[in-house]
Write a protein that binds this DNA or RNA. Structure first.
Lengths: 103, 103
DNA sequence: TGTTAATATGTCATATCTGATATATTAACA
DNA sequence: TGTTAATATATCAGATATGACATATTAACA
């Protein structure tokens, strides 16, 4: 199993609040993943609330359905840049993003 | 003059509040740059408050002085990922980051 | 069950970001 | 003025993220 897959599983694990030690990450690294996770979660919330398919959103951001799926799965191959840009396309405000981060 | 340089100048321009139309960016693109700018500004604030040189910070994040300088200049070649990771190394909390974004 | 739309996962060539390095500029002080 | 530390800027080879595509899985319904 490759690192990407492990990280993806780890992310899923954190998402539901379980503890795990496949990887030993520094405090800064986990903080970063948590932040990314919170935003990818918000991304999915906004998309589903707007009843848009991943394919449709992909078109709006000039990307592909698979990349949207990866964003929502918080795949390690997606950057925070892409997630944030997509949030703005979904109509998120700075306040939305800030709230998603602290919540 | 290349795009990177123009964008850098643009960023500096926005930072001091001037209007410009070298580039015509969409609302989402300007929102993204504004957010990045706010965070790079906060990064510099945290570093200077801690009286750390760019060189020292670079060592802490295993990068180089020049990259730190580019982060603080909000150079288009730096990712949001790198800026956020660095903020965490500087001891920023999610609340700090959220505040920097909405302020 | 089959059909269909939505979503998930794997892979890859290309684009973009990376740390490193060199060098320029700036600021503070003798 | 010179010297020094800090910061800024330019460039580049290697690393990582990208959209695209193929294919698998899931869910809802006939």
């Amino acid at each position: 199993m490759d690192t990407a897959k492990i990280k993806r599983l780890e992310s899923a694990g954190w998402q539901v609040g379980s503890a795990s030690d496949f990887l030993d990450l520094s405090e800064e690294e986990t903080a970063f993943i948590d932040l990314k996770l919170a935003l990818s979660k918000r991304l999915k919330e906004l998309r589903t609330a707007q009843q848009i398919s991943q394919k449709e959103l992909a078109k709006n951001i000039k990307s592909s359905q698979s990349r949207v799926a990866k964003m929502e799965a918080c795949d390690p191959s997606v950057s925070l840049d892409l997630i944030i840009k997509t949030l703005f396309v979904l109509g998120a405000t700075n306040q939305d993003i800030a709230t998603a981060i602290i919540r």
